[in-house]
Amino acid sequence: MITALVIMALGAVVLGAALGYASIRFKVEGDPLVEKIEAILPQTQCGQCGYPGCKPYAAAISAGEAEINLCPPGGMDGVRKLADLLGREVKPLQAEEKPKQVAIIDEQTCIGCTLCIQACPVDAIVGAAKQMHTIIEPLCTGCELCVKPCPVECIHMQPIAENLDNWKWKYPVIEIKRAA
């Protein structure tokens, strides 16, 4: 009887020690779920979801504070992926889906106030005080954050047109008329 108790107690101590050691040794820094969510988000850093960037939004989703349908740049595709990852229901997007766009500065009108440079979350605008500013188009995420601060309204958003680099083969269309 006592032997059995001792063996069980010993087992519990050994296993407990092993688990305790493992929890310290293999501790995961940060929340892996937040990272997974963040990987799905488009990293536009536009704040249209109401959070100051994609990471805070990911953290809010992970904490259950935010809905998964608040990210317009991610589109319905993003909502579907988030729903798959989190096992939540797919909901319609809370804003209208826009085509991918890029900001354009009208360089004739620009007065060089640097306000847009301060607003750009990805440092995609070059310029200096009282000098003309311009957008580095490949770096622009189309977040629209630079449009509002401009005092002379010289920034507008332009949808990215189809070109040879981003052209895609279309989904084959099944012609029902002919089949019928």
Partner: peptide, 16 residues
């Protein structure tokens, strides 16, 4: 391409 662009944007955002 989109994924790469997103990664680059994230890196720039964090740098900023």
């Amino acid at each position: 391409r989109e994924k790469n662009a997103a990664d680059a944007a994230k890196a720039r955002f964090e740098l900023r």
